[in-house]
């Protein structure tokens, strides 16, 4: 892939490792991706594939003993080498994040309005009453009914879907250029999920979104491009229609075939441990198309269509 200078965010050769007594957990391995202005990039993959770690690494939210290599360039600046004080100005203001588990992301002892206002006071220097007003506007914008009253309520009065909306409101409070949304539809029922998906497609915006999800259909609804992660690597990336409509990588095909609507054919076996990864292609032990060479050589990303890449020997 060629480096594009018009990308808002460029991740180059990102490696993230967690030292553990059992060995180094390679949660992200040589990840390359770009996010362009105003696009929604869907990042899909299963539990433990490294999606969340990638989102957290971009904002440098990982624990201090994490081993991080590579480059994360945001508007030309390498975030990994920024001093902490400058990084603090990027978080929230330039890049917003909606973390997983909306239930635990809000502080139970402050009202929701106070928590949104806090972000606005901190990053935009608004006065208390102005910030409060802005919090109400934001709640209104994300579709919370009766926002004036709800701003004064505590998180336990919010349902799962409403908490998710409140968190999205907080993340959007400072009008970031990039919004990282980590599983914002997890645990929501179909109707509530649909509301959140609609919200993402409706909020009028100039920002890009990195939409992390294990829900393939949601990614298909929202994303312009989709990246598929497996065992810490991107195994396929390209336009959403190409990747989900005509998948090239056997893993992506397997994921789609395991959907109940598409025959519910499970992928045999289970995902490898990130400490002892299989040699060669990481998916080869579970792959129906694997040939001898697959367990020996580690494939690179190969262009299979316009802007559509897959990490598979089939296309070498």
């Amino acid at each position: 892939m060629t480096a594009m200078s018009d990308a808002l965010l460029e991740v180059r050769g990102l490696k993230v490792g967690f030292p553990t007594p059992e060995g180094l957990v390679r949660a992200s391995d040589t990840v390359d991706l770009e996010i362009y202005p105003r696009e929604t990039l869907g990042l899909i993959g299963e539990t433990g594939s490294g999606k969340t770690v990638l989102g957290m690494a971009i904002l440098r939210l990982l624990q201090p003993n994490t081993i991080i290599e590579g480059e994360i360039r945001y508007r030309g600046r390498d975030l990994l080498s920024l001093p902490e004080a400058e990084m603090q100005r990027v978080r929230g203001r330039e890049i917003g994040i909606v973390l997983q588990n909306s239930g635990t992301s809000l502080n139970p002892v402050y009202t929701v309005g106070t928590q949104i206002a806090e972000a606005v006071i901190l990053h935009q220097g608004l006065s208390g009453p102005d910030a409060r007003q802005r919090a109400v506007e934001l709640l209104d914008a994300v579709g919370i009914p009766d926002p004036v009253r709800m701003a004064g309520e505590y998180p336990h009065r919010f349902s799962g879907g409403m908490r998710e909306r409140a968190l999205i409101a907080t993340a959007l409070a400072c009008r970031p250029n990039l919004l990282i949304a980590d599983e914002p539809t997890k645990g929501l029922d179909a109707v509530t999920k649909r509301g959140i998906v609609d919200l993402f497609s409706e909020i009028d915006r100039d920002h890009s979104v990195l939409f992390i999800t294990h829900d393939i259909e949601t990614a298909g609804d929202l994303a312009t491009r989709v990246a598929v992660m497996y065992a810490g690597e991107i195994v396929e990336i390209g336009g959403a229609e190409e990747v989900l409509g005509d998948p090239a990588h056997p893993y992506t095909r397997g994921l789609l075939a395991s959907l109940p609507e598409r025959g519910m054919q499970p992928i045999p076996g289970s995902a490898p441990s990130l400490i002892t990864l299989p040699s060669g292609c990481r998916f080869s032990p579970r792959c129906g198309c694997a040939v001898e060479n697959c367990s020996r050589e580690h494939p690179g990303l190969v262009e299979v269509g316009s802007g559509h890449y897959a990490r598979c020997m089939l296309y070498d």
Partner: peptide
Amino acid sequence: TSALDVSVQAQILN
């Protein structure tokens, strides 16, 4: 299976 990934969900549902 609502907390499981699709490929694991398919295994458990089957």
